[in-house]
Computed example of a mutant assay.
Amino acid sequence: MKFIWEGIMPAVTTKFTKDDNLDLIMFETNIKAQLDAGVHGIVLGGTLGEASTLSYAEKQVLTEATVDMVKDKVPVLMNIAEQSTKTAIEAAQNAEKAGASGLMMLPPMRYKSGDKETVEYFKAVANNTSLPIMIYNNPVDYKIEVTHTMFDELLKCENIEAVKESTRDTTNVTRIKNRFGDRLKIMTGVDTVALESLLLGADGWVAGLVCAFPAETVAIYELQKAGRIKEALEIYRWFMPLLELDINPKLVQNIKLAEVYTGIGTEYVREPRLPLFGEERKQVIGVIENSLKTRPTLPDYKNL
């Protein structure tokens, strides 16, 4: 079956218990809320999923559990964020064995690889898995940009199919479409430029605040797709103070706190992260509470 790169794909948070174990009960509560809202895929182990703190065993458990939870309703992607090519290949093959439908891939971690090194890293993984791959291009946070010239080479691998476009430069959507057409699908990856990117031609949105507000996120996507731009824009403008919690070093803590307020998550994070405290906590709570007071009534976005 051909992988369909479109729609809303939450980069879900990883739920932990007070004792720092995986909390699959609360995790399933959140996954159910995402499915009920009509999301189009689930992305595990990304930045929001606290990937760097998860063991290989935990990633396997999360993948297998999520595949079981979604029951083929939507694809499940595992993020690959490794320091060596060897471990990246192993992680990709483990995800495939655990039932993942696709992969999201970051450039090498810690070492700032050059263009050729980055290309060879991605190609090595692509050549050792049958899963479709989305390249996560986020030079703002990860300091390595995957340029269009590099994609010319990468797209020789048939299973490299999409980019998570997180450069924060919305003109890249048009440049990618002009250069690659439908050969390289675009999933916008920054919440605060998501609607703009979709209107410019992005195929979908790997979202963050969707973790706490799934229905509002899917509604924006479905409304703009149906040409009901004014309605999508009204929800997006309401959403913006919350979406800005995603472009912050404490995005994990911010979004987990929002999940608490909407009843589909907990605040437990894995150290060295700590839950928000002090003035920072007060500010984030203010954003969440003010947004909940004016939460919009959504149209029947599932039947447009």
Results as ranks from 00 to 15, higher is better:
69 M>L: 15
56 Y>E: 14
64 E>G: 05
55 S>H: 06
77 L>F: 09
73 K>G: 05
54 L>H: 01
76 V>W: 11
73 K>P: 01
70 V>A: 06
61 V>D: 09
77 L>I: 10
77 L>P: 01
66 T>I: 08
67 V>G: 03
62 L>T: 02
70 V>E: 10
67 V>Q: 04
61 V>C: 09
78 M>S: 13
81 A>E: 03
80 I>A: 03
59 K>H: 08
60 Q>G: 15
80 I>N: 00
75 P>Q: 14
62 L>C: 04
77 L>Y: 10
51 A>W: 02
59 K>P: 01
56 Y>P: 09
56 Y>V: 14
64 E>I: 08
78 M>F: 00
78 M>Y: 00
61 V>F: 01
76 V>D: 10
81 A>V: 02
53 T>I: 08
59 K>T: 03
54 L>F: 05
62 L>G: 02
75 P>V: 15
51 A>V: 11
58 E>H: 05
69 M>W: 05
71 K>E: 09
53 T>A: 11
75 P>M: 14
61 V>H: 04
61 V>W: 01
59 K>F: 04
78 M>D: 10
66 T>M: 08
72 D>V: 04
75 P>F: 10
75 P>A: 14
59 K>N: 10
53 T>K: 05
73 K>D: 09
60 Q>I: 06
78 M>W: 00
75 P>G: 14
78 M>V: 12
80 I>V: 13
80 I>K: 01
79 N>W: 00
79 N>L: 00
58 E>R: 07
73 K>S: 15
59 K>I: 06
55 S>I: 12
50 E>S: 09
55 S>W: 07
63 T>D: 02
77 L>K: 07
52 S>Y: 02
57 A>E: 15
72 D>M: 03
58 E>K: 07
67 V>A: 04
69 M>V: 04
56 Y>H: 13
50 E>N: 09
81 A>R: 08
66 T>L: 08
63 T>H: 04
78 M>Q: 12
53 T>M: 11
50 E>H: 07
70 V>Q: 05
69 M>A: 15
56 Y>W: 12
62 L>V: 01
79 N>H: 08
52 S>N: 12
65 A>Q: 09
68 D>N: 14
72 D>E: 14
56 Y>L: 14
56 Y>I: 12
61 V>G: 09
74 V>G: 14
78 M>T: 13
65 A>N: 06
73 K>V: 11
63 T>A: 11
81 A>W: 00
67 V>H: 02
58 E>L: 10
80 I>P: 01
60 Q>W: 07
76 V>Q: 12
81 A>H: 06
60 Q>N: 15
66 T>H: 07
51 A>P: 01
62 L>E: 05
76 V>E: 11
55 S>G: 10
54 L>K: 01
72 D>P: 05
74 V>E: 15
77 L>Q: 12
76 V>L: 12
69 M>D: 11
78 M>R: 06
74 V>F: 10
65 A>W: 03
65 A>P: 02
63 T>F: 06
61 V>A: 11
66 T>F: 08
70 V>N: 02
67 V>W: 02
72 D>C: 04
57 A>N: 12
62 L>K: 03
71 K>A: 14
50 E>L: 13
76 V>N: 12
71 K>V: 04
79 N>M: 11
74 V>I: 13
51 A>E: 08
